[in-house]
Write a protein that binds this DNA or RNA. Structure first.
Lengths: 339, 339
DNA sequence: TTGTAGGCGTTATCAT
DNA sequence: ATGATAACGCCTACAA
């Protein structure tokens, strides 16, 4: 398509018979210019199909109206929900989301962060606590705000909105304990470079230790957050150390994989085995038996993170840390132990 | 944090004792400058922690290294998978994804598209066929390429990578027909502003019509792509026109909701009712019974869309339409009709 | 209220 | 191979 270059502000100004500056003002704020003039300019703009050039504007204002998010793979339902919420909340304020993902690899988090900074984002949203400190160096040198999601920073240093994973995990384990379970197994998420996974696992250990119950090493296995790995992990557990009556999973995807494997092997849930997940993704209520889990308000967290970011960008102060509730949701996959 | 303004190229140039132009070249391409000079410049750049300013670069090169995607809510697993794939594929080429979502509302698609254009994206990815033509006007006036995903443009006009929804839906229905089913019901996705939903529904009608089987109007109901609506829709079907033995769903989320409701009501699947979905999201294999469905290669589609976009941006020609296979995946939720 | 002009940080076009 | 210098499109003091 042979096209003339897009109309620029100068073209609008000329068409409206005003100066560049007036055209700029007329388009920017209602109050800066006489009403008649403004209408003339706006008319000219829409006549010409004028679209402001964000890069030029960003250069002049040092503000891109863009915020970056560095996320783990967003095909994980929990991150998808948060991404959607962030994009939506930002859009309501005229901001757009620049999304960069990495597969839990610190070096690649650094790389994509740098890319985002080069794109002149006005702020950056990060997930969790584990990362190469270089990331913080880069963003603070850029002089833009950042927000951590998902985790609560124990040092109290980083601005964050998150959930108390360990405590919630203790709660989940207690629920099973209250049902009489004593033989536990765990399918944890990868704990390397993932503080949430570590905290959740630590919560299980903590709750068990408080009751002097042993968690045998063969009863703990890690898996990536995908169904096939969950199934394989469950199989491994069964093979290495059968006899457990309660299974705590690092998240719902892992739990649903375990559930599927139970169905396949004819293991009754919760009759023979109680299963508990973490996150409360949509599907948790859709599987059979419906999954008992810890609800993490991912969408709400996304909205809050975006809102906080916007506040920071506007130069306003906000409370440093914001804890969201993570509550136990008892459904059908957990039940009393049967001797 | 009180910060000095970020180092700019001029600072690097000064530190390296070369001109602005030379510094720019040294950082850009290896071949433009004497090796020794280049190393000096690069040294200075990393000393100062120099990060190029994308907006300035975009202004000068008229290229932002950014592509926009206008998507339905990405908390729909199928869009999440595609989003992840696009972001990943783009990143491999130094591009970043600007993500904008809308809730199947034409006017808001127009609005977010305009926003993306203002952000100076180099290209734009759209989903499906149904939209306000204004969208095309805006993007073609911007002079940037666009790619359609998910659907195949029957007019052959729009560049696209997608799947033949109607044909796949016919195939799904035939599968049920082959199992002996004659009494059908459908939970369709919203058909307004959604060509995929319409085509999928049309496919069911087409396959049934070919066998002169009636699809009673009370046996067709629409729902948004969320579990609670799916359950409600299934309940409505049961109430209005019970007696069907096969249920075709507009996507897997809808099907899983129906499955959950079956479990709750004690309806045996596939004993008393066969259920088929569409998309083959991850969870489709994780529910019990595992869901029979049509596999839509969402991630692959995302990769292809991104790759095609990159080709277009590079000014290369590509084939206008690319069809990806959508194949029937028979699992456990469908079975022979039992009289 | 409106206009003039300088600057935002890079790249690219000329020279040298 | 390197150096000046003019765009790139917009915003915003500063002037009028």
């Amino acid at each position: 398509m042979a096209r003339r270059p897009n109309p620029k502000l100068a073209d609008v100004a000329r068409a409206a018979g005003v100066s560049l500056a007036t055209a700029s003002r007329a388009l920017a704020g209602p109050a800066l210019v006489r009403r008649e003039t403004r209408e003339r300019v706006q008319g000219a703009a829409s006549m010409l199909g004028y679209v402001p050039h964000g890069a030029a504007r960003a250069l002049a204002t040092r503000r891109s109206r863009t915020v970056g998010a560095v996320f783990p793979p967003v095909d994980n339902p929990i991150f998808a929900a948060a991404t959607q919420a962030i994009a939506h909340e930002l859009a309501a304020s005229g901001y757009t989301l620049l999304l960069a993902t990495h597969e839990y690899i610190p070096a690649s988090e650094v790389a994509v962060t740098r890319t985002l900074i080069e794109r002149a984002v006005d702020g950056i949203v990060l997930v969790g606590l584990d990362r190469d400190p270089e990331v913080y160096r880069i963003v603070s040198q850029a002089g833009i705000p950042y927000e951590l999601m998902w985790s609560l920073d124990p040092s109290g240093f980083h601005p964050c909105v998150g959930v108390a994973h360990r405590i919630a995990s203790v709660r989940a384990t207690q629920h099973l304990l209250e049902l009489g379970h004593r033989e536990f197994a765990v399918i944890a998420g990868r704990t390397a470079h993932n503080d949430r996974s570590r905290e959740r696992l630590a919560g299980v250990r903590e709750a068990l230790a408080a009751r002097a119950i042993e968690l045998r090493p063969e009863r703990v296995v890690e898996a990536d957050f995908v169904l096939p790995q969950a199934r394989a992990a469950f199989g491994a557990l069964l093979e290495r150390a059968p006899g457990f009556t309660a299974l705590v999973c690092g998240n719902d995807v892992l739990a649903i994989g375990a559930l599927a494997e139970c169905a396949r092997r004819g293991i009754a849930v919760p009759g023979a085995l109680s299963v508990i997940g973490f996150d409360d993704i949509d599907m948790a209520s859709g599987v059979t038996p419906a999954l008992t889990t810890i609800r993490v308000p991912a969408a709400e967290m996304g909205r809050r993170a975006a809102a906080r970011m916007l506040e920071r960008i506007a130069g306003r102060e906000i409370e440093r840390a914001e804890e969201l509730p993570a509550s136990l949701v008892v459904r059908a996959s957990s039940g009393p132990v049967r001797p």
